[in-house]
Amino acid sequence: MELDNRCPFCGGINCERVLSSGHIWSGTDALYFNCKEGFQCTIHPSVWYGDEKEVVKRFHQIYLFMKDKPYIKINGMNYKYFFYYEEKSIGQQPDHPQKKNVAELMKNYPKTFMDKMEKIIYNLAKKYPIFGEEFIPEICMQHLLYVDNYEEEVIETEVEGVLDALVELGYLNHKSSNYGYRISAKGWNKISEMEHNETNNQGFIAMAFKEETKRISDSFKNAIKRCGYIPRRIDEKEHNKQIVPEILFEISKSKFVVVDITYPNYGAYYEAGY
């Protein structure tokens, strides 16, 4: 797919894009994007090589990922992401912390009609979190609604069509008099169910964290990711709370706990006992 002059994030034509001069991919056709809506990242050409609709889906996942995590924090500093696409590297750690494999993100792309509808209502709730808040169809919703087309006229039609489908499912209410939509009680109930499931989708790692255990920890993290769960190490989580309550909170919302005592550690014993 050839990128045109529209921004792949907001659809505008005034957003900055320049060839990347970063040390990770210097000398390639990677592009640095600075979207007026706040998205800043570098994208390797491997992301936009391929079928047009497939590439559009990849940008949906990049957009949704950056909505939640616009930067990666390293040693207390915020750094921009470098996105690439490589299927053979799924489940492996990138060779640089700023790199993010879009093939990994695609594992969470909705696979069925109902899966898509439920994820869409969840996306809308993040953008419109106030009960009763109304919104109108806009082309900038294409990422939230997983609109797979690239032509602007078709996007506008499909945006409205998806919202109408959500009305038919009962997840949205539609006020035809003023063209506005809002999330229904049934929609908020579905969102509550999904939030509960999301908090139970991680595996907690309890072990001694030091240089000698890095290989063991990385193996656990890769295995947990391959099984479709999110690995959680408490030392990698940003927080301003007391450490013990935070550990117990993370364990309580985990599906399982992996404990390694190759190197004796009182914290790991405590977490295993809890």
Rank of each mutant, 00 (worst) to 15 (best):
E2T: 08
D4W: 13
P8Y: 02
P8C: 08
F9C: 03
C10E: 01
E16Q: 14
E16P: 10
R17F: 11
R17C: 08
L19C: 01
W25V: 10
T28P: 13
F33D: 08
F33C: 10
K36R: 13
E37H: 11
E37D: 15
T42A: 03
I43C: 12
V56W: 12
F59W: 15
H60D: 09
Q61R: 15
Q61P: 07
L64K: 13
F65Q: 11
M66L: 13
M77F: 09
N78T: 01
K80P: 00
Y81C: 08
E86Y: 09
E87Q: 07
K88M: 06
P94V: 12
H96D: 15
P97W: 06
Q98T: 09
Q98D: 04
K99S: 09
K99G: 09
K99R: 11
N108I: 07
T112R: 03
M114W: 08
A125C: 02
K126H: 06
K127L: 04
Y128R: 05
G132L: 10
I136V: 11
P137K: 05
C140F: 13
M141T: 02
Q142T: 11
H143S: 02
H143C: 00
V147G: 06
N149C: 03
E151S: 06
E152R: 14
E160A: 05
L163Y: 03
A165T: 14
N173C: 08
N173E: 10
S177D: 08
Y179C: 04
R182D: 05
I183S: 00
A185S: 06
K190R: 04
E193V: 04
T199P: 01
N200W: 14
Q202Y: 08
G203Y: 02
I205Y: 13
A208T: 09
K210W: 11
E211G: 01
T213G: 01
K214E: 09
R215H: 09
R215I: 09
I216G: 03
N222K: 11
A223L: 12
I224Y: 05
R226H: 01
G228H: 05
I230D: 10
I230P: 06
R232V: 10
R233Q: 15
R233K: 15
E236M: 14
K237W: 07
E238S: 14
E238P: 13
H239F: 04
Q242S: 14
I243Q: 03
P245F: 00
E246L: 08
K255I: 04
F256Y: 15
V257R: 02
V259G: 14
T262V: 09
P264R: 07
P264M: 12
Y270L: 15
E271Q: 13
A272L: 15
Y274E: 07
